[in-house]
């Protein structure tokens, strides 16, 4: 999936052709964007890029998106990893149920999803204003840190996280690993953390990648709920300054790539063995 590996095998003609076609498909629009963003009639200028940093909202929206992404990743993994491991160890009859539930967000259009969320949020002032729940509903809509978006993103990330974890769990014999750890004197939580999770590193990384990419690019829900994370900010300024909006898009691509590579570098590193000299 998002793990980047470059094999050294020789490129054969047939594959080369496909690769070239794919490259054209991806790179031409990208190159066109870059050209447009630096072209000012007769000479090359990076004015659009230098403007970005000074534009109001850039740092705020980017930071907001990153905070949301981190919380979403933590939350969705805390939710899904124990559930998926439990499905592997027992309750295999529930596996198909969970698979269907986790795929639902793909089927429900974001626009319908956000309509549902707004309805629920409106219960606050309408019915719950005299209960403690009202405070909760107000709190999750905090302008500076809209936790309601995290809740929405967790749901939207479920299909991707499910697939990534499922693929990872398929590759390891969870039951034997847990039992081996247990017979070595590990309690249940220890067996999970010390024996199972390290072998799911790739899957956890993939799940995090996909969630990060999803959160950074998400527009519909955050826009309709009236918040301004990165993707919304890009669209908001694009109406006014065409060249800068394209520059921002290019920059956001770069930011995403850098983040993914950083995540890969951090997570892909082998943990130093602890007993070996």
């Amino acid at each position: 999936m998002a793990r980047l590996t470059f094999s050294r095998t020789r490129v054969r003609p047939g594959r080369g052709l496909v690769l070239a076609a794919a490259a054209v498909y991806f790179l031409v629009p990208l190159a066109a964007s870059v050209v447009f963003s630096v072209d000012s009639g007769d000479h090359v200028t990076f004015g659009a890029y230098s403007q970005i940093l000074g534009t109001e909202g850039f740092t705020d929206s980017l930071l907001l998106s990153l905070e949301l992404a981190v919380t979403t990743i933590v939350l969705v993994l805390l939710l899904m990893v124990p559930a998926m491991v439990a499905l592997r160890l027992g309750a295999s009859k529930l596996r198909s149920v969970v698979a269907v539930v986790c795929s639902l967000p793909l089927v429900v259009p974001p626009i319908a999803f956000v309509a549902g969320i707004s309805t629920v949020l409106k219960w606050g002032p309408e019915y719950l204003s005299r209960t403690p729940l009202f405070q909760t509903i107000v709190a999750i809509q905090n302008e500076n840190y809209p936790f309601v978006l995290v809740l929405a993103y967790v749901v939207m990330a479920l299909p991707f996280v499910y697939q990534a974890l499922d693929a990872g769990l398929r590759a390891v014999d969870v039951r034997t690993l847990v039992e081996a750890a247990r017979s070595c004197g590990a309690s249940w939580p220890q067996a999970l953390v010390r024996a199972v999770l390290p072998n799911l590193r790739g899957a956890l990384l993939n799940a995090s990648f996909l969630t990060l990419a999803l959160v950074l690019g998400e527009f519909t829900v955050s826009h309709l709920l009236g918040y301004q994370p990165f993707a919304v900010w890009i669209v908001d300024i694009s109406g006014a300054q065409a060249q800068m909006s394209v520059a921002v898009s290019v920059l956001s691509l770069l930011v995403t790539w850098v983040l993914l590579l950083a995540l890969a570098a951090v997570g892909g590193r082998r943990t130093p063995s602890r007993t070996a000299p």
Partner: peptide, 12 residues
């Protein structure tokens, strides 16, 4: 089945 922890060396 082979039940060694794949992420650990033989010693570990």
């Amino acid at each position: 089945s082979y039940s060694l922890f794949p992420h650990l060396s033989a010693l570990d």
